[in-house]
Design a protein around this nucleic acid. Structure first.
Lengths: 130, 130
DNA sequence: ATCTCTGCAAATGTTTTGCATCAGC
DNA sequence: GCTGATGCAAAACATTTGCAGAGAT
């Protein structure tokens, strides 16, 4: 059953500031990182509020968690279409890759229902490599 | 001698039990999960010991961390060859998938040197799905 | 006997929650 | 004015660390 009930949500300064922080910086940010950025706009912004709004923004699909291993969680603005990432082990930058592979889901046995998949490459980027 | 500094390590019941737990269960386990399994063999096993030994087993390349997004880490026995994972969003268990796709690396632009890649599927497993 | 490893408890770091108050609608 | 959202502090978790004593060699 999909939820049909409309839940009232309010547009608050802090939520706006957080969204803008993600948009402005343009790279995946940890909760504490957005907090620092958004705090410049909203004085006295509470960390708890950041966590609450991150959760809410993820549910609303405004931001998405980034698929990095064994690192503090990071989020980025959603709506960029299906894509994956390349992470440089030398300079620690994360790059977006376009497109995806056909038939990836063939790896999954019968009976398992796939909702999403994530693919990350780790290695050396163009600059660090040369 | 390759090793200049010889570090004494002892074969303890708890370390053996932990390794056997990973081998026996055969799917990625969180620290708490291994702890539950290994505790049956070693009564009174401390969680701190589990963490310490996980770290040591990772260094010895006996187990490897599994690539999950923004979650508590899980580990599995190393040396199984290249494979990927399926994570059930209902029961939170992680399963191993066999094989990989050809040409995955075609997604990566020229100039980038790939060392490894990780692919995870999220969805509903056979049991939760039926 | 030596010295590492263990279990416990306390410490740390991160995320969540309870509650009185503030502020969007 | 309702009532959801906020800020603060405390709570809840997950992981690490200090220490005295147990156990592997």
């Amino acid at each position: 059953m999909a939820k049909e009930i409309l839940i009232n949500t309010r547009v608050t300064r802090q939520k706006v500031a957080l969204r803008q922080a993600f948009e402005k910086v343009g790279r995946p940010l940890s909760p504490e990182e957005v907090w620092e950025v958004a705090s410049k706009q909203v004085k006295g912004l509470g960390l708890a509020t950041v966590y609450r709004n991150i959760k809410s923004l993820v549910e609303d699909n405004v931001i998405v968690p980034v698929e990095l291993i064994n690192e503090a969680p990071r989020y980025e603005i959603a709506g960029k279409g299906h894509h994956h990432h390349f992470r440089c082990n030398d300079c620690d930058k994360v790059f977006e890759l376009e497109g995806c592979i056909h038939n990836v889901e063939k790896l999954v046995p019968r009976g398992y229902k796939v909702q999403v998949h994530h693919l990350v490459f780790y290695g050396s980027c163009k600059e660090c490599n040369s």
